[in-house]
Simulated assay, not measured.
Amino acid sequence: MKEPDPRFTLANERTFLTWISTALALSAGGVAIAAIPDTVFVPWVRTVLGVMLVSLAALAAGLAYPRWRNIQRALRQETPLPPPALAAVFGYGVAAVAVVALVLIILAA
């Protein structure tokens, strides 16, 4: 195996750390949603939104290292990089949570 350019290795590491940061932010958002008073959202809705966010957090954290490892392997073997398969899951997942929360905020006003 060939050592890749250190800039690519460091960029891959920064991306890994960004996935971890994203997981922490999603988890904090899920906990915050679950902790808001009953007067803001119906309890089951808070639970659903919180579970969605924390599930996305677990997915991001759990798949960050395998993604880093696969990209690092591709860099070392000079093969094509794997596609960003989870980008759509996170984009649509966070968008779904935001739309549901927005609708509930508007209905509660």
Rank of each mutant, 00 (worst) to 15 (best):
A95W: 00
A109K: 10
L81E: 10
V99F: 09
Q77V: 07
V89R: 06
L81F: 13
P82Y: 07
A101P: 01
G91N: 00
Q77I: 09
A98I: 13
R76N: 11
A88E: 05
G91T: 01
I105Q: 03
P80M: 08
R76L: 12
F90T: 04
L107I: 06
A95Q: 00
P83M: 06
A87D: 12
V94K: 10
P84R: 06
A109H: 11
L107R: 03
L81P: 10
I105K: 01
L107M: 01
Y92K: 10
L102F: 13
A109P: 05
P83F: 04
A87R: 05
P80K: 08
P84F: 07
V103L: 08
P80T: 06
A88L: 10
V97A: 07
A96T: 14
V103I: 14
A87Y: 00
F90Y: 07
V99I: 15
A109C: 09
A108W: 00
V89S: 09
A108E: 04
V89Q: 07
L107E: 04
A98W: 15
A101Q: 13
V94G: 10
I105P: 00
Y92S: 12
E78M: 04
F90L: 08
G93F: 09
V100L: 15
V103S: 04
Q77A: 13
F90M: 06
F90I: 03
G91P: 00
A98V: 08
R76Y: 10
A85C: 06
V97T: 05
L104F: 12
G91H: 00
V99S: 02
R76A: 15
V100A: 14
A101M: 13
P80L: 05
A101W: 14
G93C: 05
P80Y: 04
V103W: 08
P80S: 07
P82V: 13
A101T: 13
A101Y: 12
I105C: 02
V99D: 05
V100Y: 12
G93E: 11
L104T: 10
A96R: 01
P84L: 08
L107Q: 02
A96I: 07
V97F: 05
A108Q: 03
A88P: 01
V94E: 13
G91Y: 00
T79A: 15
P80N: 04
L107Y: 02
A88F: 12
E78D: 06
A109L: 15
A95V: 02
L102H: 06
A108D: 03
L75V: 11
I106R: 03
L102N: 05
